[in-house]
């Protein structure tokens, strides 16, 4: 374990793991209630690894009679379509030529929590340390997500609905705090403010598509204003 990998691993423990774990715990409980097995719950958490898409997938496959696989796949993919721009944005920070082909190792872990941490921390690290730091952070987050999903699945009958609802708030609150920290930097500030302003537009669309639309509209407006 190299020092940057270990630093990333340690960086994920604490607030990031807690915020993410709380949400995955609630997700694990919801899968158990829908009658899905632990294997399904873990595979959804580790391979989809994006809560908005996981929730859409769960809602559609758990419908009485089933919604059909295709609508579920399309809905979940739309809900997590942000992974594409997030991967584009973080790619130049993953160590450039020093990382070479190893940067593909980062692919399965590009999700909101590691992405937000990476965008903040990677620019300050030496190029050679960036990919190992990201992978360390990502592995700790991934393991926390799996452990929380399994715990939620097992503990579902004991988790009071009010508690589960409160747990679901941990993740958006964590991102709100990260954004508060970024408000001093002009480009992220513009994207945030315009994304927040575009959020009501999401209410006009089905939930799976609303977030994608708000992000595209707000982000594109922020980008265009920034170029003027």
């Amino acid at each position: 374990m190299t020092p940057p990998f270990r630093a990333g691993l340690v960086g994920a423990l604490g607030a990031p793991a807690l915020a993410m774990g709380a949400t995955f715990l609630a997700f694990g409980a919801a899968t158990a209630e829908a009658g899905l097995g632990l294997g399904w719950a873990l595979a959804a958490s580790l391979l989809v690894y994006g809560m908005a898409g996981q929730v859409v997938l769960l809602q559609l496959v758990a419908l009485p009679g089933g919604a059909g696989a295709l609508p579920a796949v399309l809905g979940a993919t739309a809900a997590n379509a942000r992974f594409f721009p997030m991967a584009v944005a973080i790619a130049p920070l993953l160590g450039g030529r020093a990382a070479g082909r190893r940067r593909w190792l980062a692919a399965p872990f590009i999700a909101i929590t590691p992405w937000a941490a990476g965008m903040r921390r990677l620019p300050a690290l030496p190029e050679a340390a960036r990919l190992p730091w990201f992978l360390g952070f990502a592995h700790a987050s991934w393991i926390a997500a799996a452990a929380a999903t399994a715990a939620g699945h097992r503990l579902a009958p004991h988790l009071d609905p009010a508690l589960r609802a409160a747990l679901l708030f941990a993740n958006p609150l964590y991102f709100a705090l990260l954004m508060a920290a970024d408000l001093r930097v002009p480009a992220p500030r513009r994207a945030m403010l315009l994304g927040a302003a575009a959020a009501p537009a999401a209410l006009l669309l089905p939930p799976a598509w609303g977030l994608l639309a708000a992000g595209l509209v707000g982000g594109t407006a922020a980008f265009l204003i920034g170029r003027r």
Partner: peptide, 24 residues
């Protein structure tokens, strides 16, 4: 552009979770 869209998506996610959440 991709960074701006990602940041805006995150902000919209937070606003919706506070103002008009779905599910539980």
């Amino acid at each position: 552009w991709a960074a701006a869209v990602s940041g805006a998506t995150l902000a919209a996610f937070v606003v919706l979770a506070v103002a008009a959440p779905g599910g539980m």
